[in-house]
Design a protein around this nucleic acid. Structure first.
Lengths: 264, 264
DNA sequence: CGGAGCGTTTGATGAAGATCAAGCGATAGG
DNA sequence: CCTATCGCTTGATCTTCATCAAACGCTCCG
């Protein structure tokens, strides 16, 4: 429960509101591979992932694509809860998970009672929205090798790791997340050997980060390199971090220069 | 000003809040082709499009893609305002526009004062978020001909038009929005001739809607066919409409059947 | 009226990515 | 220990989409 109170969503909230919101909430454990929610289902609960990994995916016409992979602590399907609408994504556990389920009614009631909570919900949603904007830009503006290269750099930044990065998921899931087939992910990795990327199972070594960056051309307006863990847990925090880092000049103002050039 | 008060964002709000929020707001006219905002810029205002068309786009590495096209009445870059973050998208007028600009501070202050307003902001953001989820699914799960087919059907539903649909934008902009080149949009239109689609400038005639639907396989979890205009102006309203329509069974429960099949 | 400019279309070609098929390598179970 | 399974890789082939080039049709304007 303390971990829940520590969530950005509840951090700034009056004790009464917290009680209202978490009334009827229950903690539940799920085995790996459990369908938590099927797209099209009405959404009765806000889910808070406390431990494990959850995959959000969408299907159409016998095709399936992974839309996001969540790691603790994060909330999901908040948007559907706010609107009391049907889920647009399905949710499935990738590992054994510990999840807090908060009734949607309680959330909506708490929002009406406490403007600080409503504000926190807005911030959370705004963060998720901006995350999706980044996703769309990533997919429409880059090819698959570029997406993979930037994914590796983002992972490096998030985990504050040096030249060795660990993939957190199976490669076929990563492939779907990045919008390609497992075969092409494999080929994309080989293509990145030329810039010092080597793969051994889940362990990826980046022996030439400069070359990788030259190929990837990471952009703070697509890739959020906020270091996760510590202060930054919610998307919203990462977004604010990104803007501030950007304003402070980022990497020697590299972005500023290119922004000026674009001003034609 | 009455049109602003009529926005879902302000509809349910106390008069005091409305005054706070619109303090310092000013109405402005812009000619066609004006850059309202460049990605990476700090966002000082919430924009409310009252007349004209605005394009939101993103750039990377000399490539550019259209992310959304807005028509009145709609607000934009609300997410950046809520977080006081930098813009992730650039905004450009496509025609002469009439735009209300509300200082971001005023919005954030109003949210803290009035939970109903904060709730309205949350609903708006949730609606936009779900719109983007639909966009991502559309792009990752469908090829270009399928995207065009569904775009035409959505246009038909939105405008409540029969077999004749009018494109609201230049084809090269539509192409970018749908994630393809102008050349391929042209070819996609020719491919759709086989299912009764004919193009003459901006006028598209759908002489065989059944065949078009068989090819497009529209899905309420990707395509929101809420009829725009009338009650439904904001994305959030459209989302709620979609869920309710879906629960009521939609087109003879077509969706329900396929959802059941997916339950394997 | 004629021509410049622009958006669109059409065709030819090339690159990126999907699919199909087979083989590799680890892990789990008999 | 052997083998079945599963995820991953590799190669060959095909589809989809982008690019390049040229022509068409339209509007605007001298």
């Amino acid at each position: 429960m303390e971990r829940v109170k520590g969530l950005p969503l509840f951090a700034d909230v009056a004790p009464d509101t917290f009680r209202v919101a978490t009334a009827g909430a229950h903690l539940q454990r799920f085995p790996a591979g459990t369908m938590l929610l099927l797209e099209g289902d009405p959404v009765d609960f806000l889910y808070v992932l406390l431990d494990g990994q959850v995959e959000l995916h969408g299907t159409w016409n016998d095709r399936e694509t992974v839309l996001a992979i969540l790691r603790p602590v994060s909330t999901f399907i908040l948007a559907a809860v706010v609107l009391d609408a049907d889920a647009l994504m399905s949710a499935r556990t990738l590992e054994r998970c510990e999840i807090l389920m908060i009734p949607g009614d309680a959330i909506r009631t708490a929002m009406r009672l406490d403007p600080r909570f409503a504000m926190a919900v807005s911030r959370d949603l705004a963060g998720c929205y901006r995350g999706l904007v980044r996703t769309v830009k990533n997919h429409k503006l880059r090819n698959s090798v570029e997406r993979l290269a930037n994914y590796l750099l983002a992972l490096r930044a998030a985990d504050n790791s040096g030249g060795v990065v660990r993939l957190h998921h199976e490669k076929r899931i990563l492939a779907s997340l990045l919008g390609m087939t497992p075969e092409n992910l494999s080929r994309a990795f080989s293509a990145l050997q030329a810039v010092g990327v080597n793969v051994q199972g889940a362990v990826v070594t980046l022996s030439n980060v400069a070359a990788l960056e030259a190929l990837a051309k990471p952009d703070p307006l697509i890739d959020n390199h906020a270091p996760r863990g510590g202060d930054i847990i919610a998307e919203a925090d990462a977004e604010v971090w990104s803007s501030e880092w950007n304003r402070a000049g980022g990497v020697a103002g590299a972005r500023t220069a290119s922004a000026g050039k674009r001003n034609d």
